[in-house]
Amino acid sequence: MSNRAFGPFDAMLHHLVMRRWRKIAAAADDLGLDRLRRVRLRALELRQVTDRLLYVSNGRLALPLIGSNAFSKPLHSDWSWRPELWRGPIFPPGQAAVESKTGFGDEVKIFHDCRISELTVRQLRNTHEDDLAPYGLRMDVFQFDGSFLSLVVDLPESAMRALGRKHLIRMNAVVETEKPLEIFARLNIQHGPNTEQMVRELPLSDRELSVDFDLAYTKLNEKRVERAWVDLIFEGPEMNQVMLRDVNFSRRPRAEV
């Protein structure tokens, strides 16, 4: 957009528009119903535009910077990645009564077997001074009549390049819960018709945590690796709020002995 749009003429036009809307707002109690309906429709159209502008500007102007892929990585890491959900804004940013297999961005999905969903999920902007991820994900779980709840993160194709049994894959997370909760991380790697699985319990004694998956303990066929994903499994999530301030991954070769 040209800088002329923010010059003296724009300031004068903005002043006139604001003065007009102040007069309309002051006279709203006395307007006829037909005219009030027309005015309300115009106000709603204006609010849609301003709400979108505020959503984008608040996100871009806050810290940490949108798109940041900065986080602590182990020495000699040859791959690292923060999913889109924690890196930049998604739209819509949230949903109530979330159904199973609902996607949030292109890489994250929610799975559950509830008959009636009382699960609310929303992406929020991180603003704590120690936050590294631009965004976080909040899940509010009320009544829960299912047997499982999981958040599935699909790892990108870059994670599979030259992946072998010599590698360790690390997941870092920053987790806050309203009350104690067991959370497990399960790494799945599909190679040909087979899928290797490794499960780790997240040590929630600390807000910032890490778990490692050592591929030496798998039967991975390195020549047939097709895809990989991580399930975050929440045990007994009823009447709880879970805030995932950050989730990121890295890969490093095992030290030679």
Score class of each variant (00 low, 15 high):
37 R>I: 00
243 M>D: 10
120 T>V: 12
209 L>Y: 13
120 T>C: 04
149 L>Y: 15
91 F>E: 14
163 L>Y: 14
226 E>S: 12
218 T>M: 04
179 K>S: 15
231 D>T: 05
8 P>G: 07
50 T>I: 01
175 V>F: 03
159 A>S: 13
121 V>T: 12
44 L>M: 08
2 S>P: 08
80 S>T: 09
116 I>G: 06
164 G>N: 11
125 R>V: 07
109 K>T: 07
75 L>R: 10
13 L>Q: 13
137 L>F: 11
211 V>T: 09
221 N>A: 12
4 R>D: 10
84 E>V: 06
40 R>N: 03
93 P>C: 02
78 D>F: 07
212 D>N: 06
175 V>Y: 03
16 L>P: 07
85 L>H: 01
61 L>P: 04
70 A>H: 02
168 L>K: 14
204 L>I: 08
188 N>W: 02
76 H>K: 01
40 R>L: 08
200 R>D: 03
235 E>T: 13
164 G>M: 08
104 F>Q: 05
90 I>F: 05
209 L>K: 04
166 K>G: 13
166 K>F: 15
79 W>T: 10
115 R>V: 15
239 M>Y: 09
66 I>G: 02
138 R>N: 02
170 R>I: 06
202 L>K: 01
126 N>R: 00
150 S>R: 09
62 A>Q: 00
51 D>L: 04
117 S>D: 12
86 W>P: 00
232 L>C: 00
74 P>K: 08
121 V>S: 03
8 P>L: 15
108 V>E: 07
255 A>T: 04
11 A>N: 02
75 L>I: 10
164 G>C: 14
130 D>K: 05
232 L>A: 01
255 A>P: 11
11 A>H: 12
53 L>M: 05
158 S>P: 02
127 T>S: 02
129 E>T: 13
252 R>E: 08
235 E>I: 05
224 R>Q: 01
221 N>P: 01
54 L>V: 05
257 V>T: 11
239 M>L: 11
207 R>K: 13
60 R>V: 08
51 D>R: 15
201 E>Y: 00
68 S>F: 03
52 R>T: 03
14 H>S: 07
180 P>I: 04
172 N>S: 13
49 V>S: 13
113 D>Q: 14
182 E>R: 14
102 T>S: 07
90 I>W: 07
89 P>S: 11
87 R>H: 01
189 I>P: 10
146 G>T: 15
87 R>F: 02
72 S>V: 15
